[in-house]
Amino acid sequence: MASIQATLQASQEQLIQAGLVDSPKIDAELLLCHTLDVNRSYLFTWPEKELTAEQTHAFQNDLQLRLAGHPIAHIIGQREFWGLNLRVSNNTLIPRPDTETLIEAVLNLDGIKNKQAECTILDLGTGSGAIALALKSELPHCDITAIDQSQAALEIARENAISNQLDVQFMQSDWFSAIGQKQYHCIVSNPPYIEEDDPHLNQGDVRFEPLSALTSGEDGLDDIRLIINQAWSHLVSQGWLVIEHGYNQAESIAELFKETGFQNRTLCKDLGGNPRVSLGQKP
């Protein structure tokens, strides 16, 4: 049987040969950790430990999925986001580091983090619950509601709330349809914002993610237009709307915010320096 070190080296070479060159070392380590049910420090502590035949078989099955392009998060069934361990499936988007820009933006808002009175937040299109749960972990005093039109996604989100011991209310809704007349101090969303004919939809991890959570019309702005328009009546005075979007959509979204009447408009950049999150405040 091959050792942990030999297994990692061989699998890294296979990943590179398959063109998966972004993070072959980490990919191999995460897959082996999943197989052995250990953390990464175990791999470094016991590099000479040999895998059993059963472990080798299970690892090779997972490696073949990765070599075929399946996302690591789907293979191992989880992804870390904002320090939380979240379950994911092909019914949800895989939480990405750039979305942490949205969390940081909300935490920097006046009247949210240090607000002593009731503070309410609505997360539109919650998916795995990543945004809502990250915010709740930082803002325990806030009453957070997270909605999604997908019942399958909501089941994943509820499981993540339980496993991370965070109290978030989840409900099924097509954007604001089930909200009634309720208003919030802050509305956040990472909505679909990719153009329907974007060639990147046929590349990488997005090939295995729900298309309904990715695309939104010819220019990718159909859902964002609806959210900006309808959010106005669901925000209290001085309430904030915070939206994640594509790197090339900042100017269009700034104009939509302006047309609707949002003030104190702000643009935040992601880890790569790209425009990623836009904020606006209702007077």
Rank of each mutant, 00 (worst) to 15 (best):
E155N: 13
G129N: 08
L122D: 03
Q149T: 13
Q165F: 07
N160V: 02
D143S: 15
Q172V: 07
S173V: 12
S128A: 14
F170S: 14
F170E: 06
F170Q: 05
R158V: 15
I144W: 08
Q169W: 08
T145A: 09
D167P: 00
C142Q: 00
D143A: 13
R158Y: 08
N164H: 10
L122K: 09
D123M: 01
T126N: 01
Q172E: 11
G127E: 07
I121R: 00
T126Q: 12
Q172F: 02
H141K: 12
I162S: 12
I162P: 00
K136W: 12
L135C: 05
L154F: 02
L133P: 00
N160I: 01
A132W: 08
Q149A: 15
K136Q: 06
A153H: 09
I162K: 15
C142P: 10
A152V: 12
Q169P: 00
V168P: 06
I147H: 00
D123S: 09
S163D: 15
S150Y: 00
S173Y: 05
Q169M: 10
S163G: 02
I144G: 03
C142H: 06
L139S: 02
L124S: 08
D148V: 05
V168Q: 01
K136C: 03
N160M: 00
D148A: 10
D148C: 06
Q169A: 14
